[in-house]
Every structure is written in structure tokens, then in C-alpha cells.
């Protein structure tokens, strides 16, 4: 089975502190991590290969330093990693990114299933993988918590974790699935895996390789134009500490919450 995993590299929010705010983190951008949702993407793709055989190709559109994320994918057990990097790709909206990913998938040729994450924690579009499905004209199956694939029958069954319950659906391959945390527990790369990944070749593709024009990607190919990015105004949460024995403190707090009209 030919499995494609879409992953993104993002700033490591664990580095946020009173001195390092989100803007600094986005700008100097070190260290970076695999987008947390895409850890599940990778694990899902690798488990599919383990059950059905075949090959996992990890795809990423990003800056040159995104090779680190791809190496994590290889170290976990993916077979091939491709980075699509080009100055003209900067600042693209989700659809511009999806367009590039779809071209890359076409260039890879064989594809039975594409796996993506629910959202990227930096851009938060929660859209790119679904847009990939739309451009490929294959079914998108989102919020997947359980997945059974029958490659020979060209068929998959998934349990989707929705706001109000769990929905079981079936569809045909190829398809694009996006996964949620409940689906698995991402493995840690093994020592051997890390060593292999360190020496592995990561394919680098540019626009020319994909036959895309600069106007179709990046800022010029985007309909959503970012005009500003800032740290939100800190809201004043002046803490009112409520002291006393449980009964008294609870009555005071109940009173205050009723005054605030929040219950």
C-alpha cells in the first residue's frame, strides 16, 4: 500500500515563557517540533504499513530547516521523506499549500491513502488536508479515532470522533484521513531509527520540479492575506483569593459567581 503522511514543522510552544512571547517564537523559530497533531499522522501511517505492507512517504512544505521534522518521521519508521521548499512558497494560505501538496502527490504517482493532522498549531487553519482531498477529488474523512483499511478491497472503515458522538463511516480508496489523538500513541524513535534517519537522503523538490508557477503558490497564489500578527493584550485576571474553611470559602465563592452572573 502506498501511504502518504502530511506533516508540518512548527514552533515549540513549550519554549514560551514570560521572556519569550509567541512573536519571538514565530520569528526566530528555534527550536521547532513536528506539529503535535502530526505525531498521530506519522504513527497512523507507520501502523498502516506495518499491517498491510507497502511504503510510507512523508511530505512537508516548509523552510529548509523542516528537514528535522522529516527526519523524525524517518526515525519513527517512514521509508521516504520529501521536502518541498522554495522561497516563493512563503506566506501561502492553506489552499496554496494544499495545491503544492497535491502536485507532489501526483509526482509521487501511486497513492492509496493520505494521512494528515487535525490542525497545525501555528496557522490553525484546520483545513489543509481536507483541501488536499478536494483538489484530488477523493473523499476526506476527518476526526478519525479508529481506522481499518482493506487495501485489496479498496475500502476503509473509520470511526469519527464528533462533538456529539461517534460516527462510523465507510468509503473507498484513495482517501484522505485526518486523525485525532485518540487514534494511537505515537512511538518514540529508536536509537537505530535515529541513526538511520541521520544518514538518510531527504528528497528536495522545488516549484520547477512540480511544474507549478510562482503565481499559484505563496502569497501571490493566496486568497487569504495576512495583514498583522501580534501578541494579544493580556487580559487582567486580577486574582481574588478566597480563604477560609471549605464551607465558608464555598459559600463566599458561590455568592461571587452569582454576582458575576456566570451561573
Amino acid at each position: 500500500m502506498n501511504i502518504i503522511a502530511l506533516i508540518k514543522q512548527v514552533p515549540d510552544t513549550a519554549q514560551l515563557s514570560p521572556i519569550v512571547d509567541g512573536l519571538q517564537l514565530m520569528q526566530n523559530g528555534q527550536p521547532r517540533i513536528v506539529n503535535p497533531w502530526d505525531e498521530y499522522t506519522l504513527e497512523t501511517a507507520i501502523q498502516l504499513k506495518e499491517s498491510h505492507g507497502g511504503k510510507v512517504t512523508v511530505l512537508c512544505v516548509g523552510k529548509p530547516e523542516s528537514v528535522e521534522a522529516l527526519k523524525t518521521g524517518l526515525a519513527m519508521g517512514a521509508d521516504e521523506a520529501i521536502l518541498i521548499s522554495d522561497d516563493t512558497l512563503e506566506g501561502g494560505d492553506s489552499l496554496a499549500t494544499a495545491r503544492v501538496l497535491v502536485k507532489a502527490i501526483e509526482k509521487i504517482g501511486a497513492c492509496d491513502i493520505v494521512v494528515g493532522g487535525r490542525a497545525s498549531i501555528d496557522d490553525n487553519h484546520a483545513a489543509t488536508a481536507v483541501q488536499v482531498a478536494a483538489l484530488m477529488d477523493v473523499p476526506p474523512i476527518s476526526y478519525v479515532a479508529e481506522l481499518t483499511v482493506e487495501p485489496d478491497a479498496g475500502h476503509l472503515k473509520a470511526v469519527r470522533l464528533l462533538e456529539t458522538g461517534r460516527e462510523t463511516v465507510t468509503t473507498t480508496l484513495p482517501a484522505v484521513v485526518t486523525v485525532v489523538k485518540e487514534i494511537n500513541e505515537p512511538r518514540y524513535p529508536t536509537f537505530i531509527g535515529i541513526r538511520k534517519a541521520a544518514n538518510a537522503e531527504i528528497l528536495m523538490w522545488t516549484l520547477v520540479d512540480l511544474g507549478l508557477e510562482a503565481e499559484e503558490v505563496g502569497v501571490s497564489g493566496s486568497k487569504l492575506i495576512r495583514t498583522g500578527l501580534e501578541v494579544p493584550q493580556a487580559r487582567e485576571a486580577t486574582l481574588e483569593l478566597i480563604e477560609g474553611a471549605p464551607g465558608d470559602a464555598a459559600r463566599t465563592l458561590a455568592e461571587r459567581l452569582i454576582e458575576e452572573q456566570v451561573i
Binding site: P11, T13, L16, D21, G22, L23, L25, M26, I121, D122, D123, N124, S222, K223, L224, I225, R226, T227, G228, L229, E230, V231, P232
Partner: peptide, 24 residues
């Protein structure tokens, strides 16, 4: 139209507009 959206899991706010009249 100017849209405001959270970025970096709520640690930033991004403002954006559309390049044309869509329908967006």
C-alpha cells in the same frame, strides 16, 4: 472585510483580509 483569528494556539492574534471578492 478584516478578519481576526487566533494563531499559535491562542498566543498570537492574526489579522487578515481576502485578496478578492470571492465568494470567500
Amino acid at each position: 472585510l478584516v478578519m481576526t483569528r487566533p494563531a499559535l494556539i491562542g498566543n498570537l492574534v492574526a489579522t487578515a483580509r481576502f485578496a478578492d471578492d470571492g465568494p470567500n
